[in-house]
């Protein structure tokens, strides 16, 4: 457990820290437009630290939707973190519980993507908590700073996501996804998940699509693996 891997995690997360900038700005701007003050906008980024949930929340606040419903929607949109936790847990099983309480707070999409990629590659350093901590710290810093700037700028600038910068996140996630597609089965899992996510998003109201598409694709991948094994044995 080399503590210097904190900086490796930070470095590997750098593209996401940059890609996050337009989103943090947009969140701050949207929050200000929804009528939240600077303290409230920042308090949400500090405490919740979940981009897509915060976007949804400020949008719902501006529509005067009740807080219980917003909290429930937050739960739905964050259900994917349960699967991320499940996927990381074998690598973290030897750590003290105290580490898990800390690392869990920072398990955002970007940190999950970078960390699972690093742990899967292994190289004798799978499960180093300092790597994940560094990655989370980088995203947290970028998220807080850009939320703050967005909140101050408020409506004095245009929505940065309207320029085409909203592609920064899909592009950065693609840079992690593409190298993981090493077999026909992984390609199929990707396609099943992506296509069903789009279908569920359009067909089912609410935020169920992420968890439903992921479960469907994971089940399909596992089934394919078992069927192929039985055929060859």
């Amino acid at each position: 457990m080399d503590p210097r891997k904190f900086f490796t995690g930070l470095r590997k997360t750098f593209p996401f820290m940059v890609g996050l900038i337009p989103f943090g700005l947009a969140y701050g701007i949207m929050g200000a437009q929804a009528g939240l003050n600077l303290a409230e906008i920042m308090f949400m980024s500090v405490v919740v630290f979940a981009g897509s949930a915060q976007f949804m929340a400020v949008e719902m606040i501006s529509q005067n939707i009740g807080i219980v419903f917003i909290a429930f929607s937050t739960l739905l949109i964050n259900l994917r973190h349960i699967l991320m936790g499940l996927s990381l847990s074998p690598y973290l099983s030897r750590l003290r519980a105290r580490w898990l309480y800390i690392l869990a707070f920072g398990m955002v999409d970007e940190t999950y993507a970078v960390t699972i990629d690093y742990y899967q590659k292994g190289a004798g350093d799978s499960g180093n908590p300092y790597f994940m901590l560094g990655s989370s710290a980088g995203i947290y810093f970028s998220w807080l700073l850009t939320s703050f700037i967005g909140a101050i700028l408020g409506s004095s600038i245009q929505d940065p996501l309207a320029w085409g910068l909203d592609f920064a996140m899909p592009a950065t996630f693609l840079s992690i996804l593409i190298p993981q597609i090493k077999s026909m089965r992984m390609l199929l899992v990707m396609l099943i998940s992506g296509v069903s996510a789009v279908a569920f998003l359009l067909l089912i109201p609410g935020k169920w699509y992420i968890i439903m598409a992921t479960l469907l694709a994971v089940a399909a991948g596992t089934t394919m693996e078992i069927v192929q094994e039985r055929r060859s044995s």
């Binding site: 994917r80 909203d166 996630f173 099943i192 992921t214």
Partner: peptide, 14 residues
């Protein structure tokens, strides 16, 4: 299969 599946759900809708 979880990482690939989750990443796809984060990319395709956008």
């Amino acid at each position: 299969y979880i990482p690939v599946a989750i990443l796809a759900t984060l990319i395709f809708p956008g």
